[in-house]
Design a protein around this nucleic acid. Structure first.
Lengths: 245, 245
DNA sequence: GCAAAAGTGTTCTTCTTACACCCATGG
DNA sequence: CCATGGGTGTAAGAAGAACACTTTTGC
């Protein structure tokens, strides 16, 4: 890692970034019937959420997009701002290599969650970290500061958003099976759902297209493949659904 | 107004407050079957939302509470953070009496909405304004910056929150009639509801207590008075409801 | 006495839930 | 052949929507 770059970042970051304002992203993916989050590991230890700062002329939404882009390599990600964390004690144990550095000041953090297609992501550590990888949602290690709280709140928001928005398009591959979609909803909601009723509800939304193909290769009876009707899906996203989970 | 105070505020505000971070509050009240918002008028012209800044050692939530307290005289207000506004162009036309002042810098704003009991509020202008009063929600004047956007988003959030939270306790007097409660829901939702079905739904929530008294004095048949069962109401708030409006 | 608002119940429809049998596949 | 998961439909119950007549009051 370029240590001049790092030094500049600590010392002169405030020339580029707003002070006191940061962005944290909870990036959700879904793989092997598991909901996952993308985490970073700092060089000196703890795991944390991918985050960053807001450039002086940049909108906060754009900062989130940029951070997402840098960590995942993806553009055009489904992103939702869900809460802003403003407790002065939120960065408990914050290290200040130089107390005069803008970095050592108090930061409020604007939380975004992102839904991404697991297989398309190429996890990239940032300047402060040396590892970036997926963790099962229920196996995340201890996180720095209030990042566990942020993650929990993101999940809660996602759960609530499930009531009025469809969600699979951003988390699943283009073609997927009904049981896969169901697992996705079940993990997010942390609940078991009835197969038949789930299928009926999903099909009733009229945003799915049933393909003639089946997914072969697995054990057991081969399930049909579906894909989202992109147009109808976008419509449903905009209009809002009325699902009571 | 104390002009030294004002000068200090412009010049040295950053000793007290975080730079780049502000809080705006959309304060809703309900009176004479009208949903209202509390607005301030700046000394030099335009109307705006009550807002303020975050002290260095203060949580953002506490800033909102403090601002609410200062404008309405009320403690213990129902407050919800609903969105953070971070477009660098959001403060279009911002005046900078002194470009070096912290005040002239870019601010992101954390939006809160509050529900208050109209009759208990004693509107108080702040240091920058000379008027503070209620406006009908559909008659608000032109607002400064992006404050109209913030207000609209607050209303939209309130509308969505209606799906899982009861709302009357904070906006109505202790005793109120069913038609009043219905007007409240109708104004927030901007829709007409059926009297009989509305009553059935509300009573089914099991958070209302029907009193023997009626509200007299008005023209027409005297409606019964109700009040919220505080305990059950608090329970419903915490647990969340499942109303699909 | 009339206009305007409030009290009240029933029916129909829709949505939700619960539930069971057969089929395909891999081991 | 058997264990496991997937495909599919129906019936009962709950919730939501539609709807009308009578009562009270001020004017």
């Amino acid at each position: 890692m370029d240590s001049k770059l790092l030094k500049d970042f600590y010392n002169r970051g405030d020339l580029v970034f707003l002070s006191h304002v940061s962005v944290d992203c909870v990036i959700f993916g879904f793989h092997e019937n598991q909901l996952k989050v993308l985490l970073l590991k700092w060089k000196d230890g703890p795991w944390c959420l991918p985050g960053g700062f807001v450039k002086h002329e940049e909108s906060v939404d754009d900062s989130a997009v940029r951070i997402l882009q840098e960590r995942t390599g993806l553009d055009n990600i489904y992103l939702q701002q869900f809460h802003t964390f403003g407790d002065p004690k939120r960065e408990k144990g914050k290290k200040s290599p130089d107390a005069k550095s803008w970095m050592s000041k108090r930061f409020i953090s604007i939380g975004y969650y992102a839904l991404v297609e697991f297989s398309k992501v190429n996890p990239q550590p940032d300047i402060l970290s040396n590892e970036c990888r997926w963790w099962d949602i229920d196996k995340v290690p201890t996180l720095i500061y209030d990042h566990k709280l942020i993650m929990d709140k993101a999940l809660e928001s996602l759960r609530l958003d499930l009531n009025d928005h469809p969600v699979g398009y951003n988390l699943l591959p283009t073609k997927f099976t009904m049981p896969e979609l169901q697992r996705l909803y079940e993990t997010i909601l942390n609940a078991d759902l009835d197969r038949r009723n789930f299928q009926k509800r999903m099909l009733a939304l009229d945003i799915l297209e049933k393909l003639k193909e089946r997914k072969t290769g697995g054990a057991h009876k081969a399930p049909f493949l579906y894909r989202f009707d992109k147009k109808k899906y976008a419509e449903a996203l905009k209009q809002g659904l009325k699902l009571g989970w």
